[in-house]
């Protein structure tokens, strides 16, 4: 089973982003790297020429590179940017991850990944998307494992890869409104890039102090880190080809190493859960979606 590093969902700035991808390419056990901005088109941390040089710099690592596209596409500029990303993907011969139906529309026929923000809830939808170019899909994060089994079994018209969001703060939703800007009584138009102050999202708690959400600009995420490490024994039976680890600002190389060891049977999942918990500062994880439970809950297999 391959490990992918999902797109960086946070605003880290140019040099941190470039450094991160260098480490993932040359120091981590990951197989696939997803580059590109998914959350907000106002963030321009990596220009197209930065992306281009990054693709050239990372190529010697031998890892598969994929170009990710915006999750909620609204403006003309965003659609033009999609077209440019498609052209670049063609030129570099890398897959394009569509996270909005616009991405599939723009790049129809090209080798596409249907990202977690494209709603693929049944095999008949996947059948159609395969006809328009999709060669890999990432399950919607809320899809339970039982439904994944059904998808994998009945969707073998053509070879297609299945990727599972397996570790990281869950991307739960997008809005036109920027919640980080709102926290500072600013509007999105004048956001002052406040999301850059929160490298893992702005923690949002209930009035009882329970961690609930992490606001990341126009994206809302889970406060708890989602992890399926304890469920690794079940993954081979599901027919999953890749597990996705979603970037966080700290400990990524170690997290990927723990996942690699666990997937390879060199580390016991219980031990891996404890090690990941230590790297997570002792904060509780969640994994409910996989078990057909509320996403924020943790189910011990």
């Amino acid at each position: 089973m391959k490990i992918s590093i999902g797109p960086v969902l946070f605003e880290w700035g140019r040099s941190a982003l470039k450094g991160f991808w260098q480490r993932m390419a040359f120091e981590s056990d990951a197989d696939v790297l997803y580059l590109g901005e998914v959350v907000c088109s106002k963030r321009q941390s990596l220009s197209l020429s930065d992306l281009e040089s990054l693709v050239h710099e990372l190529a010697p690592s031998g890892k598969e590179l994929v170009l990710s596209t915006l999750g909620l596409v609204m403006s003309e500029e965003e659609q033009q940017a999609l077209q440019r990303l498609h052209e670049l993907a063609v030129g570099w011969n890398v897959k394009l991850e569509a996270n909005d139906m616009a991405g599939i529309g723009v790049a129809e026929g090209y080798a596409l990944v249907a990202g977690p923000h494209v709603n693929v809830y049944n095999p008949a939808t996947l059948d159609f998307l395969q006809e328009v170019g999709v060669v890999r899909m990432v399950f919607p994060v809320e899809l339970p494992a039982d439904s994944m089994v059904g998808m994998v079994r009945s969707a073998r018209v053509k070879p297609v890869e299945f990727e599972l969001f397996a570790h990281g703060r869950l991307p739960l939703t997008f809005s036109a409104r920027c919640y980080t800007a709102r926290a500072f009584r600013l509007s999105k138009a004048n956001c002052q890039y406040k999301c850059g102050d929160f490298p893992d999202g702005m923690i949002t708690r209930t009035q009882e102090g329970e961690g609930l959400l992490a606001m990341n600009g126009v994206q809302t995420m889970s406060e708890k880190v989602y992890t399926l490490i304890a469920d690794v024994p079940r993954l081979p039976g599901l027919g999953i080809d890749l597990v996705r680890i979603s970037p966080q600002s700290q400990h990524m190389v170690e997290i990927v190493a723990i996942w690699r060891a666990t997937l390879d049977g060199r580390m016991d999942p219980e031990e891996a859960l404890i090690k990941l918990g230590e790297l997570n500062g002792g904060e509780p994880f969640c994994n409910g979606y996989f078990h057909n439970q509320p996403g924020m809950s943790f189910y011990r297999p």
Partner: peptide
């Protein structure tokens, strides 16, 4: 709805019940 409809998992995150499902 303040979120993009069809792209919101807030309900399922807390209750297990999803608008999409």
């Amino acid at each position: 709805c303040v979120m993009a409809e069809g792209r919101c998992h807030l309900s399922s995150f807390v209750t297990g019940v999803s608008p999409n499902i």
